[in-house]
Design a protein around this nucleic acid. Structure first.
Lengths: 339, 339
DNA sequence: AAAATTTATGTCAACGTTGTCATGTGTTTA
DNA sequence: TAAACACATGACAACGTTGACATAAATTTT
């Protein structure tokens, strides 16, 4: 085959027209005679010409967006990514992936590079990055288009379009569910002071207990992160003490799975001896035994909405700040018993 | 703040030098006096200048690569993606994500666009796309740089650098492991005629049985795909027949998890009443109860190697065809009993 | 001290597109 | 039948960068 990729000029030469005319055909502009149009299209097909997107990018707005996240191993990420991707494909955008370490202190630098170098037209930020108000402001100061996904009953401010997910309400609902079934000693696994989702779920947990006239026992609130191993560790800790809880609220499904595993280790039957609920409705939550009662978090939808907002932000140039809230639904399965 | 992003010329004007000199500073070229260098760097910092990568791209080779995959919901993908990403960051490359539907018939068209439009310098192909020889050839014909990840004891041909993963050997090993423990009726779940990994594992399974002087019973080979639900369905089918197997070889961990679930539904204790093995060593395979005996498939490493090969292909211009094979190791856990 | 060489900087074209404007053609309007 | 207008095409600059080459100053060699 030929050595170089054909350019718009090669097409023009072969079709016997100016390269501008080819450009018109490629971009479906008006004022091109059908005659020439078909002739040019024939040459395009013949040469298998593909417009050079990079060159085009020098004259037009970027058509790529970046997905920035921190916790690369979670389902969360892949589901979000799929949601974003669905929007991207629909609207002809490209997706560039950017994991970061939010503790590295280089995040601002990295994001500045991504944005400043013009390769992407905007970024989607997820927690904990999205909850760093200062960071968002600094990105915005660089004319970046930003959409963030955060935990909350409402967007924290009007800096930029924001998708907010009501963890508190869901935490309330699932705790109340346990209370309704007669549980009184309910442990909360996965409290994390720097983690808004955790805090939101915790607030909901507390509110539900209060509503039932109960107080929150410090003994029953365990700090940890959102992993299976952490779930194992917290549950171990809990089961070694006297006065065991009758139900566990795992801050996410992985913690709950760790709890399930540990309960089994201790010969406790779930849900007969111990009820366990999770949060997120990740794929494996219906593959455990028993299947986990949990809260459905529509990650793909959430992220798709974020992508849709970002894309419209990139397309229309007005700095709109449309927000969008998500309520989370309980998913009742088999890991909870009536007390 | 200012309205436009600063360009190299803005920096030059403020520093009182030619824009070419700024370019030299930015790219760390030789023959720049320290005096001017520091002056220019100061202005760069002051303006927060970021080189426009798009413009740079018009003169240099692409610094992005595409990851093309088909099955968006598997762990497989996220692990591979992480592996690729680690290489990308190390070498300063960007990653663009491209899920496709290999059955859509548009794959070639899509990939042609990606490659032809010059936004990426190469693609990493995974099964089943990577196993479509014709597709690979057509991409190669367009001067695309391609690295593929396939199943096999050796690369199928020398079209392009290839990472091959020895499913057959691993399938042999894990089957022999079951045989060594005394199992004779071993079912194979997840046979799929269009799926090279499945076929490789199946060949290994057959070879191990033959080595032990056994014949492959058609009754015990169930066709299905690599999902939990498929695992459930196949196991159901198996358990409804008389003459049950003593062990199940799930073609991947999801199938094995489905089998585990179904066994529990049927009041069968694993591994006492039924042994189950999986394949892939996905995160949840050590979170099930009992923990799954499986084969470790180092997806991140495999993909990282693929990315490394692709990047070196993009950097040095010679059309090398270096290959790389991976052997898979058994991971012995708790889902298998001695018979 | 002239010539050659090294070092430091600048000028300008090119990359492949799209946007602006100019220049044609016909075809309608006055 | 001239003027106005729609339509169709082309010339050329611009986007922000890098590479090839030119030039000037400083240093070394003859």
């Amino acid at each position: 085959m030929s050595s170089k990729k054909p350019t718009i000029k090669d097409v023009a030469r072969l079709a016997g027209v100016s390269f501008k005319t080819v450009s018109r055909v490629v971009n479906n502009e008006a004022w091109v005679s059908d005659d020439i149009k078909t002739r040019v299209q024939a040459v395009i097909a013949q040469l298998n010409y593909q417009p050079n997107r990079t060159a085009r990018l020098m004259r037009t707005a970027p058509f790529s967006l970046a997905f920035v996240y921190d916790n690369p191993n979670s389902h969360y990420v892949i589901e979000m990514q799929n949601g974003i991707l669905s929007q991207c494909r629909q609207k002809g955008f490209e997706l560039v992936i950017h994991p970061t370490d939010s503790h590295s202190g280089q995040v601002l630098q990295e994001l500045t590079t991504i944005i400043g170098s013009n390769q992407v037209g905007g970024v989607i930020l997820t927690p904990p990055l999205s909850e760093n108000r200062e960071l968002v402001q600094q990105l915005l100061a660089q004319q970046a288009k930003v959409v963030r996904i955060v935990s909350g009953s409402a967007p924290p401010d009007d800096l930029c379009p924001t998708i907010y997910v009501d963890d508190e309400q869901a935490g309330f609902n699932i705790t109340r569910h346990l209370l309704t079934l007669g549980h009184r000693r309910i442990a909360f696994l996965g409290y994390h002071k720097d983690h808004q989702s955790s805090l939101g779920r915790y607030r909901g947990y507390c509110a539900a207990l209060h509503e039932a006239g109960l107080t929150v026992s410090e003994q029953l609130v365990l700090a940890g992160d959102f992993t299976f191993d952490s779930g194992v560790a917290m549950t171990e800790q809990l089961l070694q003490r006297g006065d065991k809880p009758t139900a566990l609220f795992g801050c996410n499904d992985e913690i709950a799975a760790g709890a399930l595993f540990t309960a089994r280790m201790h010969q406790l039957a779930v849900p007969q001896d111990l009820s366990i609920v999770g949060f997120e409705n990740s794929p494996f939550s219906r593959q455990t035994w028993p299947r986990l009662t949990t809260v459905h978090q529509p990650n793909a939808e959430i992220a798709a909405k974020a992508a849709a907002l970002l894309i419209s932000l990139m397309l229309e140039n007005e700095a709109q700040t449309e927000h969008c809230g998500f309520e989370l639904q309980l998913v009742l399965r088999d890991s909870v018993s009536i007390l």
